[in-house]
Design a protein around this nucleic acid. Structure first.
Lengths: 104, 104
DNA sequence: CGTTTCTACAACCATGTGGTTGTACGTTAG
DNA sequence: CTAACGTACAACCACATGGTTGTAGAAACG
């Protein structure tokens, strides 16, 4: 989880994810898109890969980067859980208020 | 967004979020739950507050921490968007395959 | 009143992070 | 074969982060 959210906590990496979800890119193809060194982009891709947000596949001398839903869905599960907990609390509070209503 | 995901990228902070979504805690009440200094927990709460995952309200000499859904939902929106993009690509690929089918 | 409790904040330290450059190696093109 | 391309990785730097301790102020307690 740490790696997952850490990976998403950078604008460049979120942009990479958005791009590779739409189409395939080589690492150098991605590097062209940003105003930073190839090595920097390479590191970003590595971070995304460790977080299961992206996968790489060797094709000739290029390394093709694809978007993976695994990471996205895992992160979503946690947020859904938070929302569920919150709604439970709210409804519990409403129940208590309803009991008070009964007593009036 | 950076602040949001950055805030979620720490196990202690995620635990704090989970706790305050269920019930209210004072900052010192939260600090008791963890094996670290009060100041450390205070910093975590501050990070969560800047990310709209938590809100504080003064009550007497205590500061009450509550869970906020704002941040959670904002993060979810991005992940939903990623999932939407991904499904669009998949269905586009399926359309292309279907066209190929037509030609056979 | 004085003392305790809860909070805020600054200073400090070790480590991690995002960026750089440089080097090395496999693969394709001429 | 040689040159160019795409990649991997190490070393380095500036700065952020997660933790500590210490100090100080505001609110509650006796």
């Amino acid at each position: 989880m740490d790696r997952l959210f850490q990976a998403l906590a950078d604008a460049t990496r979120r942009d990479i994810v958005a791009r590779v979800l739409v189409a395939e890119y080589s690492v150098s193809g991605l590097a062209e898109q940003y105003d930073m060194s190839f090595a920097a982009v390479q590191k970003h891709v590595a971070v995304l890969e460790r977080a299961s947000l992206v996968s790489k596949e060797k094709r000739g001398r290029e390394q093709i980067v694809r978007g993976e839903l695994d990471g996205v869905q895992e992160a979503r599960r946690l947020l859904d859980e938070y929302e569920r907990i919150w709604r439970q609390r709210v409804s519990r509070i409403e129940d208590i208020l309803a009991e008070d209503e009964d007593r009036t």
